[in-house]
Design a protein around this nucleic acid. Structure first.
Length: 220
DNA sequence: TATAAGATGGGT
DNA sequence: CCCATCTTATAC
C-alpha cells in the first residue's frame, strides 16, 4: 500500500447543539439580563441569518412609559403578555415592521426589541430584499432594516422562536463577553432618556446610530 | 368618528 | 433637515 487512507471522520455523536433550554430559561427571567444575553444570538428567517448586535429592553406595565404595554393589554401588544420566546411584531410609521422577543413569565409584558444585526447567512437574499443598500453592514442596521432583511412582517406575529417554525432564535455561536457590551439610553423613545436599557456590541459596525426622539408636534 | 403621534428609514 | 405612510390608541 502506498499510503494510508484518510481516517474516517467520526460522527459527532454528542452534537454540542445550541443549548435551547438555557436560552429558554434566560428569556423567562428578567428582561435586562435577557436583553444582554441575546447579543450574539442568531435570528433566522426567510433564508437569512443575523447575528444580533444591538437590542433594547422594555419592561411591562410597571413603570416603563416607553413600553408598548405600558397602558395595559391591547390587541396589538397581546402577545407581550404571554409566555417568553414568542415574537412581538409591530408596524410603525405607516411602513416599517419591527420585531421583539417576548420575555418574562406568562402574564408579564416585557420584551426585547432586536435593533440590529450582522447578516451572517444569506447575504444575497438580504441584498435582494434591500436593494438600496450599499454596504453589507447596513443590511440589518436598525430595527426595521433587520425585519426587512429577514422578510419579517405581520405573519410572524406570535411565532414561537425556539422551535422549528419559520422564524428561529438560537444562542450565540460565540458568546459576547460582558466587557464587550456597551449600554446607553434607548433610541426613539419619548421619555425615560435616563434609563440605559439599550445594549450593543461595542465597536460593531452593524450597530445603528443613536437618535434622540423629537415629537412631531415639536417639529412644526 | 376624528385626530395625533409613532421603539424608522431614506433622500436632500 | 424633510418627508412618506398608515396603524393604533385615545379623545370627542
Amino acid at each position: 500500500m502506498s499510503r494510508a487512507v484518510p481516517p474516517p471522520r467520526p460522527a459527532p455523536a454528542e452534537a454540542p447543539g445550541p443549548d435551547l433550554a438555557a436560552l429558554a430559561d434566560l428569556l423567562a427571567g428578567p428582561v435586562v439580563p435577557a436583553a444582554r444575553g441575546l447579543l450574539g444570538g442568531r435570528l433566522s428567517a426567510g433564508g437569512v441569518t443575523v447575528r444580533i448586535t444591538e437590542v433594547e429592553a422594555y419592561a411591562g406595565t410597571a413603570g416603563d412609559p416607553a413600553s408598548h404595554a405600558h397602558r395595559g393589554r391591547t390587541p396589538r401588544n397581546a402577545v407581550m403578555f404571554g409566555p417568553a420566546g414568542h415574537a412581538y411584531v409591530y408596524f410603525t410609521y405607516g411602513m416599517h415592521w419591527c420585531v421583539n422577543v417576548v420575555t418574562g413569565p406568562d402574564g408579564e409584558a416585557s420584551a426585547v426589541l432586536l435593533r440590529a444585526g450582522e447578516v451572517v447567512e444569506g447575504v444575497d437574499v438580504a441584498r435582494a430584499r434591500r436593494p438600496a443598500v450599499r454596504r453589507d453592514v447596513d443590511l440589518a442596521r436598525g430595527p426595521a432594516r433587520l425585519c426587512a432583511a429577514l422578510g419579517i412582517d405581520r405573519a410572524a406575529y406570535g411565532s414561537h422562536l425556539l422551535g422549528d417554525g419559520p422564524v428561529r432564535l438560537r444562542p450565540a455561536v460565540e458568546p459576547v463577553p460582558e466587557a464587550a457590551v456597551a449600554a446607553g439610553p434607548r433610541v426613539g423613545v419619548t421619555g425615560a432618556h435616563d434609563v440605559p436599557w439599550r445594549f450593543w456590541v461595542a465597536g460593531d459596525p452593524t450597530v445603528s446610530a443613536y437618535r434622540r426622539h423629537v415629537p412631531r408636534a415639536a417639529r412644526r
